[in-house]
Design a protein around this nucleic acid. Structure first.
Length: 392
DNA sequence: TCTGGGGTCCTAGGACCC
DNA sequence: TCTGGGGTCCTAGGACCC
C-alpha cells in the first residue's frame, strides 16, 4: 500500500493579493484590507509590503496606520474573494478527487497513490502552482507531507510562493527547526504558560513527559502538544463533528446603552442567523447571546430549548430574554451577537403536534419570505420594526 | 496598540439519575 | 443516617484559528 501523502495549499496574503490583482497600480505597494481607518476594525489581511512595516492580521487598524502611514487601506470584498477561491478550488480538484477546503484560502489534497499518474509529488506541486498562477494570476504555497498536520506546517515554511516537502522519516528534524509559535494550535497563552517552565523550543517541549504536560494543560491539551512536538498529527481535522454553530455579531461605532436599540439589533442579527439556518436545512435548540462591554469584558448566556427554534419571533424573543438575564448592570455595550449551537441537519418529519397552530402558521409565512429572498437576492424584505435607524 | 467576525474545541462545576 | 462513583446534560468562559 502506498504511503500516505497530503498536499496543503495556502494562498499567499489572499485578500490583499486579490486587490493587487484587480488593481495593478497597487502592486508593489503596502495594501491593508480591513475596517475603515479611524474605526474600530482590525486588519483582515495585508500584502508582504505592508508586513515589512510591521503590519499583521488581527492588528487594530489604528496601529496599522501608525506603522504604515503610506499604506493603501481597503474594505473587505468578500464576494470577490469567494469567486477567486472557487476558481482555485476547481483547479485543485483536477489533481485529487479528495479536496478538503478548510477556509476561504486553504485546502488539503489527499494525494496518496497518485505518483504513478502524476509523477513525483514535488513536480506535481510545481505544476499545480504554475497552473493556478496562469489561470488566476495568484501565487499559492504548497506543503507536501505524510500527514495533514505536517503538510500544513510545511506550506507555511517557505511562504510566499513556497513549495516544501517533508519526507517520511524527517518528521522530528523538521519540527525541531520550527519556533514554538509555528506549531498549529499553540497560541500566545500556551506559549506564555510553557515559558514559565523554561520551555521555549520544540526540542524542549519534546523532552517533557506526558504526565508533566497533563498537569500543566489537562489531558487533551497535553496529548495535543506531545504529538505535535513529535510531528505526529494531533488530530487537527480528524473527525468532523455532526453539529456546528451559526452566529452573527456586530461591534458598534459607539457603545450603546439603550435596551430598545439593542433589541432591534438583535432582531436583525437573528434574522440573518435564521436565514442561514433555513438555507442549509438545519435545526437547532441552543441559543446563545454574547455581549462585550466598554472594558472588553465579554459575557455569554445560553439556553437549551425543549423544541427546535421554528420562527424568527422565537429566536428573537429568546435572545432578548438572555440579554436581560445577563445585562443586569446596563453598562454600555460595545458588541452584541446571537448564535445557534448544536445545529443539526433537519432529518425526518417534524412532530407537528408539539407546535401550536399559530407557531406553525408563522413559520410558513417566514419560510415564504426566506424563499423569496433566496430567489431575489438582495431584495429587502424586513419587518417594519426593523426598518428604523440602527446606529452602526 | 486598544482590540472584527466567523467558527471549533476544551474545561469546570452543578444538577440529576442509577 | 451517611455515603460511593460514573454518566449525561447543561451553562459560562476561554484558547485558538483564518
Amino acid at each position: 500500500m502506498a504511503d500516505p501523502l497530503w498536499f496543503h495549499v495556502d494562498m499567499d496574503a489572499f485578500y490583499a493579493s486579490v486587490e493587487q490583482l484587480d488593481n495593478p497600480q497597487l502592486r508593489g505597494r503596502p495594501v491593508i484590507v480591513g475596517g475603515k481607518p479611524g474605526g474600530r476594525g482590525v486588519v483582515s489581511a495585508c500584502s508582504y509590503e505592508a508586513r515589512a512595516c510591521g503590519v499583521h492580521s488581527a492588528q487594530p487598524i489604528a496601529k496599522a496606520s501608525e506603522l504604515c502611514p503610506h499604506g493603501v487601506f481597503l474594505p473587505v470584498r468578500m464576494s470577490r474573494y469567494r469567486e477567486l477561491s472557487q476558481q482555485i478550488m476547481r483547479a485543485l480538484s483536477n489533481y485529487s478527487p479528495e479536496v478538503h477546503q478548510v477556509s476561504i484560502d486553504e485546502a488539503f489534497l489527499e494525494m496518496t497513490g497518485t505518483e504513478r499518474l502524476f509523477g513525483s509529488p514535488h513536480d506535481t506541486a510545481g505544476r499545480l502552482k504554475r497552473e493556478v498562477r496562469c489561470e488566476t494570476g495568484l501565487t499559492i504555497s504548497i506543503g507536501i507531507a505524510p500527514s495533514r498536520y505536517l503538510a500544513k506546517l510545511a506550506s507555511g515554511y517557505d511562504k510566499p510562493d513556497g513549495l516544501y516537502q517533508v519526507h517520511p522519516g524527517e518528521e522530528l528534524a523538521f519540527t525541531a527547526r520550527l519556533p514554538l509559535s509555528k506549531l498549529w494550535g499553540v497560541g500566545k497563552q500556551s506559549r506564555r504558560h510553557l515559558e514559565r517552565y523554561g520551555i521555549t523550543t520544540v526540542t524542549q517541549l519534546r523532552a517533557q513527559t506526558i504526565e508533566h504536560l497533563t498537569r500543566l494543560f489537562g489531558e487533551a491539551g497535553a496529548w495535543y502538544l506531545y504529538r505535535s512536538a513529535r510531528g505526529i498529527d494531533p488530530g487537527m481535522y480528524a473527525e468532523r463533528t455532526k453539529t456546528h454553530s451559526i452566529s452573527s455579531e456586530t461591534t458598534f461605532e459607539h457603545d450603546i446603552a439603550g435596551a430598545e436599540t439593542l433589541e432591534r439589533v438583535l432582531l436583525e442579527l437573528s434574522d440573518g442567523v435564521l436565514y442561514r439556518l433555513r438555507q442549509e436545512g438545519g435545526v437547532a435548540r441552543v441559543v446563545t447571546l454574547k455581549i462585550r462591554l466598554q472594558d472588553f469584558t465579554t459575557k455569554t448566556a445560553r439556553t437549551t430549548r425543549t423544541a427546535p427554534i421554528r420562527s424568527l419571533e422565537e429566536l428573537h424573543s429568546t435572545a432578548v430574554e438572555l440579554l436581560h438575564r445577563r445585562w443586569t448592570n446596563r453598562r454600555p455595550v460595545r458588541l452584541i451577537g446571537v448564535g445557534l449551537d448544536n445545529v443539526l441537519l433537519d432529518t425526518g418529519p417534524e412532530q407537528v403536534e408539539l407546535f401550536e397552530d399559530r407557531g406553525e402558521r408563522q413559520r410558513r409565512v417566514e419560510d415564504a419570505v426566506f424563499d423569496l429572498r433566496r430567489r431575489y437576492r438582495g431584495i429587502a424584505i424586513r419587518k417594519a420594526r426593523n426598518l428604523g435607524e440602527t446606529n452602526r
